[in-house]
Design a protein around this nucleic acid. Sequence first.
DNA 1: CATCTACCTTGACATCCGTCAAAACAGCGC
DNA 2: GCGCTGTTTTGACGGATGTCAAGGTAGATG
Lengths: 134, 134
Amino acid sequence: MSKQDPLAAIVGCCEPLAREPLSAEQAMELSRVFKAMGDPVRLRLLSLIASHAGGEACVCDLTDVFDLSGPTISHHLKVLREAGLITGERRGTWVYYRVRPDLLAQVSAVLVPAAPESPAGMPPDREALPVVEA
Amino acid sequence: MSKQDPLAAIVGCCEPLAREPLSAEQAMELSRVFKAMGDPVRLRLLSLIASHAGGEACVCDLTDVFDLSGPTISHHLKVLREAGLITGERRGTWVYYRVRPDLLAQVSAVLVPAAPESPAGMPPDREALPVVEA
DNA sequence: CATCTACCTTGACATCCGTCAAAACAGCGC
DNA sequence: GCGCTGTTTTGACGGATGTCAAGGTAGATG
């Protein structure tokens, strides 16, 4: 459970949620990644980096997209970095960030709904259960 | 953008992150789901419900798993419910929760790394870029 | 109707978090 | 070495959040 590289904790970590409950430790590590993505600015930053031409984005490409100060963007990038979602590389005065697709793939796989191993014969009306009125 | 049913906002919402940046609105909706999963207790609750026999769990199955008070569990379930991740149904004095697999599938799909449309010819050494030393 | 169990809501509190101004650090060119 | 640009860190502040005690609601039973 390395704090410096959450990927090490998450690789091979978890069956799909629908198959097996997470342990307290697994939930602790995985929730850190979700919490990092739980802010709209950070989520947009992640998507900007992931989809940027060349698979990486310079901080200078990111800061003007938001009406926020430089330190705020820097702070958000740090949160993403520490969650293991991105890696950064300095090239001269510029810093370029890339996403870690392996981590995203892992997290994505944990969320996948019940695999085709779902029990056959489930009553189809189960899907129509009413939502609780709050 | 219904506040009562985030699924309505997320269905068909988003290309994979790696393909296209999220808009501010998309990020706002999606980050709400991630924020809901960004707490270890809530993530464990979600996994317990998702993997429970019969695809649903009664609150009474959940409360003893944690060393937390009833109101805290209730609050967490509410957060998950309002994020659209679970639905609840009262049966007599008991309340049963189920996950919404369609929402999970959507969110999972957004996180999937670059699809097979990735540009061929990417230099393989790109994966070995060093992590910035903090 | 009274009593019970299960669950949810309210309000208070301590802790956490997003934001920015100021300061500091990293790298470059002269 | 100095001045510049780009980026990160630090510290303060206001707002958000996890937790629980107290209180309330929903449903079942006698």
